[in-house]
Design a protein around this nucleic acid. Structure first.
Lengths: 109, 109
DNA sequence: GCTAATATGTCGCCATACGACATGTCGCGC
DNA sequence: GCGCGACATGTCGTATGGCGACATATTAGC
């Protein structure tokens, strides 16, 4: 458990968390959402997706969230962002801003 | 243009390239420069640094650049950014901007 | 009935990050 | 002239993670 600052996130992890920040979703929906959020640049393979989900659940950044009003027979497992996951996501956005600021600074100087 | 010429860079790679964008430097100087650029958040280990340098030279993103006016007996190998490396760095900055824009968009909506 | 899209999951390969280790030089205080 | 910390470069083994390939099942539409 890192009470310390969050480690740099990979693009996949970042986009998955961002996806879920918009609301609970199940795996397949996350895949499409990530492609959408990245303008098609990032196409998650199922290996990456479900591997990441397992890891994120384990780290307590996301959690199972099965909607009460869902009664379809189709196999679907929804997930939502936890408080910890939201903090990680926002910390990551701050890190990206710092990285960009450094870029601007170097290019200007 | 190519759909995706440059893969997402790791923070280490990005900071090393950014370091060299400010001017040619040798390995040890890059280490300190990276720590400086990231406000001390990123402390490269030598394993990461020299592994990355080897890879980046191999990919043609950076190249050896030994200053003519350097005559010290101390072992120093300087590197500088190539055109390709500069393009990769700028592409990465654009990617970061897109990632941040997506964050703002999701958080606003 | 067939096919594509939906949906979840595993397996193995490979690239990368990184701590630990190895080696040597240079400047400075004592 | 000796020790020591900073300078400087490099290798090695391990762990993590991304990803293509494979496996399986359901549902919608033609």
């Amino acid at each position: 458990m890192e009470s310390q600052p969050f480690a740099p996130l990979s693009e996949s992890t970042y986009l998955i968390l961002l996806s879920l920040a918009a609301g609970p979703q199940h795996g397949y929906a996350i895949m499409k959402s990530v492609a959408d959020l990245s303008d098609g640049r990032m196409q998650l393979s199922t290996g990456t997706l479900y591997g990441a989900i397992k890891r994120l659940v384990n780290d307590g950044w996301i959690e199972r969230f099965d909607e009460a009003d869902y009664s379809g027979g189709r196999d679907r497992k929804a997930y939502r962002l936890t408080e910890l996951g939201l903090r990680a996501l926002n910390a990551e956005a701050d890190r990206l801003r710092a990285l960009l600021a450094a870029h601007v600074q170097v290019m200007a100087g």
